[in-house]
Simulated scan of single mutants.
Amino acid sequence: MRITDVIRRKGAEVVTVRPDHTVSELLTLLAEHRIGALVVSRDGASVDGIVSERDVVRTLHTHGAAVLDMPVSDLMTAEVTTCGPDDDVEHLMRLMTDQRVRHIPVVVDGSLHGIVSIGDVVKHRIDELQVERDQLVGYINQ
């Protein structure tokens, strides 16, 4: 299966945050959309970075409450691992495991096309296994 199949099921909407927004604004977006990471983008199409709840917690540990007024650019990961819609889901699972990341933006011709989380991948895999199970049960019951 391809990343495009995952995106088709979950939708291509991506919530982004500008690098100059504060961490407080970031936290509002994370809570509002009930998500764990945001793509950092100046224009909503480029991928300038990615920032997650983990980034906030780690910075909170070292800077305390002052983190809330810091710009997102101070916390974000600037070197972002991305994938394309034609990439294989198994490859993406391995990439997420090897790099210990839970969110990977999907990029097409340099533009943000979607984002895939580990939860999306797990759900997709469970759905695949259910279809295989149903086919096997149907075959056995023939």
Results as ranks from 00 to 15, higher is better:
64 G>H: 14
120 D>Y: 03
36 G>Q: 03
64 G>A: 11
131 V>L: 14
6 V>C: 06
66 A>N: 13
73 S>R: 15
85 P>F: 14
141 N>G: 10
29 L>S: 15
54 R>W: 06
121 V>K: 06
28 T>H: 05
73 S>H: 14
56 V>M: 02
134 D>L: 00
81 T>Q: 06
134 D>G: 01
17 V>W: 01
20 D>T: 08
56 V>T: 12
101 V>K: 10
74 D>S: 09
6 V>I: 14
47 V>P: 01
95 L>G: 01
17 V>R: 00
81 T>E: 14
102 R>W: 02
79 E>G: 07
48 D>L: 05
15 V>P: 01
70 M>K: 06
20 D>H: 07
130 Q>A: 04
52 S>G: 04
141 N>K: 10
132 E>K: 13
115 I>G: 08
84 G>H: 13
110 G>Q: 06
136 L>T: 03
100 R>E: 10
14 V>A: 08
110 G>A: 10
81 T>L: 05
45 A>H: 11
115 I>F: 01
103 H>K: 00
125 R>V: 15
65 A>E: 13
40 V>G: 00
84 G>Q: 08
122 V>I: 15
98 D>M: 05
94 R>K: 15
59 T>W: 09
13 E>V: 05
62 T>G: 03
11 G>L: 02
31 A>M: 12
96 M>T: 10
12 A>R: 15
53 E>G: 03
37 A>K: 01
60 L>Y: 08
137 V>Q: 11
35 I>S: 06
44 G>P: 01
4 T>F: 13
82 T>Y: 08
10 K>S: 08
142 Q>G: 15
20 D>M: 12
71 P>Y: 03
